[in-house]
Simulated scan of single mutants.
Amino acid sequence: MKYTQLGRTGLQVSRIVLGTMNFGPQTDETASHAIMDAALDAGINFFDTANVYGWGENKGRTEEIIGSWLARGGDRRDKTVLATKLNGHMGVGDPWPNHHKLSAVNIRRSVEASLRRLGTDYIDVYQFHHVDRLTPFEEIWQAIDVLITQGKVLYAGSSNFPGYKIAQANEIAARTGRVGLVSEQCLYNLAERRAEMEVVPAAREYGLGVIPWSPLHGGMLGGILRKEREGGGSRSKGGIAAQSLTDPAVRARVQAYEDLLAKHDLDPGETALAWLLTRPGVTGPIVGPRTAEQLDAALRAVELDLSDEVLTALDDIFPGPGPSPEAFAW
Score class of each variant (00 low, 15 high):
residue 224 I to A: 13
residue 198 E to Y: 01
residue 240 I to V: 15
residue 214 S to Q: 11
residue 167 A to H: 04
residue 176 T to A: 13
residue 218 G to M: 12
residue 244 S to N: 12
residue 166 I to H: 12
residue 161 F to I: 06
residue 267 D to P: 01
residue 221 L to E: 06
residue 240 I to L: 15
residue 237 K to G: 03
residue 243 Q to E: 12
residue 236 S to D: 14
residue 256 A to H: 06
residue 202 A to I: 03
residue 223 G to T: 09
residue 265 D to P: 00
residue 265 D to F: 05
residue 251 R to H: 05
residue 266 L to M: 09
residue 218 G to Y: 13
residue 202 A to C: 06
residue 212 P to M: 10
residue 243 Q to R: 15
residue 212 P to T: 11
residue 262 A to C: 07
residue 185 Q to P: 03
residue 268 P to C: 11
residue 188 Y to K: 02
residue 187 L to S: 09
residue 255 Q to A: 11
residue 261 L to S: 05
residue 171 E to P: 00
residue 179 V to L: 15
residue 274 A to M: 07
residue 212 P to I: 10
residue 187 L to N: 09
residue 225 L to N: 05
residue 214 S to R: 11
residue 216 L to P: 02
residue 280 P to Q: 13
residue 253 R to T: 00
residue 226 R to L: 03
residue 252 A to K: 14
residue 178 R to Y: 09
residue 252 A to E: 15
residue 171 E to I: 12
residue 176 T to D: 09
residue 192 E to V: 10
residue 232 G to A: 13
residue 240 I to R: 15
residue 280 P to C: 07
residue 191 A to V: 01
residue 208 L to G: 09
residue 192 E to I: 04
residue 165 K to N: 05
residue 262 A to L: 12
residue 208 L to P: 06
residue 192 E to L: 05
residue 240 I to F: 10
residue 178 R to D: 07
residue 199 V to C: 01
residue 261 L to P: 02
residue 243 Q to K: 14
residue 267 D to G: 03
residue 201 P to H: 08
residue 233 G to A: 02
residue 184 E to P: 02
residue 236 S to Q: 07
residue 222 G to M: 07
residue 210 V to A: 10
residue 185 Q to W: 06
residue 275 W to K: 04
residue 192 E to P: 00
residue 274 A to Y: 05
residue 200 V to E: 02
residue 224 I to P: 00
residue 253 R to G: 00
residue 187 L to W: 13
residue 214 S to W: 09
residue 199 V to P: 00
residue 268 P to N: 13
residue 224 I to M: 04
residue 209 G to C: 04
residue 202 A to F: 04
residue 188 Y to W: 04
residue 216 L to M: 13
residue 256 A to P: 00
residue 187 L to C: 05
residue 230 E to N: 05
residue 199 V to N: 01
residue 184 E to I: 15
residue 178 R to H: 09
residue 190 L to S: 10
residue 217 H to E: 09
residue 177 G to T: 10
residue 258 E to K: 03
residue 162 P to S: 13
residue 233 G to R: 01
residue 187 L to G: 03
residue 206 Y to C: 02
residue 225 L to P: 03
residue 169 A to E: 04
residue 197 M to P: 00
residue 194 R to M: 01
residue 221 L to W: 05
residue 164 Y to P: 00
residue 170 N to G: 05
residue 162 P to G: 10
residue 221 L to A: 08
residue 237 K to Y: 01
residue 189 N to A: 12
residue 163 G to K: 03
residue 274 A to G: 04
residue 201 P to Y: 05
residue 253 R to I: 00
residue 245 L to E: 02
residue 204 R to M: 15
residue 217 H to Q: 13
residue 198 E to I: 01
residue 178 R to C: 07
residue 203 A to Q: 08
residue 223 G to Q: 08
residue 200 V to I: 15
residue 235 R to Q: 04
residue 271 T to Q: 06
residue 232 G to Q: 07
residue 271 T to K: 08
residue 227 K to L: 08
residue 168 Q to A: 14
residue 277 L to M: 14
residue 278 T to N: 08
residue 272 A to T: 06
residue 162 P to E: 14
residue 197 M to S: 01
residue 232 G to D: 08
residue 236 S to A: 11
residue 211 I to W: 04
residue 226 R to D: 02
residue 270 E to L: 02
residue 217 H to R: 04
residue 230 E to R: 08
residue 229 R to G: 07
